[in-house]
């Protein structure tokens, strides 16, 4: 079932470029209360899940996900899409995750650097804003995030939450 949920998220997002981006999108979705149960810890680029890495690899081995490896300068980049077999498999599951599609598509339009910042802020969401900034500046010093980017990330998180709760409120009214 957990595999199917990841596939569903990918199907909703369309193509996702980059392992880092994929990790951050699922983490952010989890923090938005979508039912993903992969465990995340804090690593180089912020929240990262070994379980998710494993799940993606298994889905690739099963032929449900297509992983395209391409050389980009000094490193490899990976593109992920759902295969036809994956779509067929997914059709056997009835997975209801309202508003996930809007969130995944919105996140997919952002770059991985920004999603890294958003997910890092969410990781420390129990801290005050000043403490979060201090964490971003000390733990992500190499990324050189600016105050302005941090504000944008906070606004983005609020916007994502509104997409979910706003829509829920609308449903309640109608």
């Amino acid at each position: 079932m957990e595999h199917a949920k990841i596939m569903k998220a990918l199907a909703m997002a369309g193509e996702i470029v980059g392992r880092k981006k994929l990790q951050k999108m699922i983490y952010i979705a989890k923090k938005m209360s979508f039912p993903f149960y992969e465990k995340f810890g804090f690593h180089f680029y912020g929240p990262y899940s070994e379980e998710l890495t494993l799940r993606i690899e298994e889905l690739c081995n099963l032929g449900f996900l297509n992983e395209m490896k391409e050389k980009r300068g000094g490193y490899f980049q990976y593109r992920y899409t759902l295969t036809e077999a994956g779509e067929e498999f997914l059709s056997h599951y009835d997975i209801e995750m309202p508003h996930l599609q809007e969130c995944m598509q919105d996140m997919n339009k952002q770059n991985s650097r920004f999603l890294e910042l958003v997910s890092t802020i969410l990781y420390f969401e129990n801290l005050s804003k000043d403490e979060v900034k201090e964490k971003v500046f000390s733990l992500k010093s190499k990324q050189r995030y600016t105050e302005e980017e941090i504000e944008q990330a906070y606004a983005y998180i609020e916007n994502l939450r509104n997409k979910i709760t706003g829509n829920k409120n609308q449903e309640a009214v109608s």
Binding site: G18, R19, K20, L22, Q23, H43, F44, Y45, Y48, T53, L54, E57, E58, R72, G74, Y75, F76, Q77, Y78
Partner: peptide, 19 residues
């Protein structure tokens, strides 16, 4: 399923995540 990555090196820009 069980899975292990015995040692990993750093891949700049991509999610390798191991120091």
């Amino acid at each position: 399923s069980s899975s292990d990555l015995p040692y990993d090196f750093y891949r700049p820009g991509e999610e390798g995540e191991r120091l």
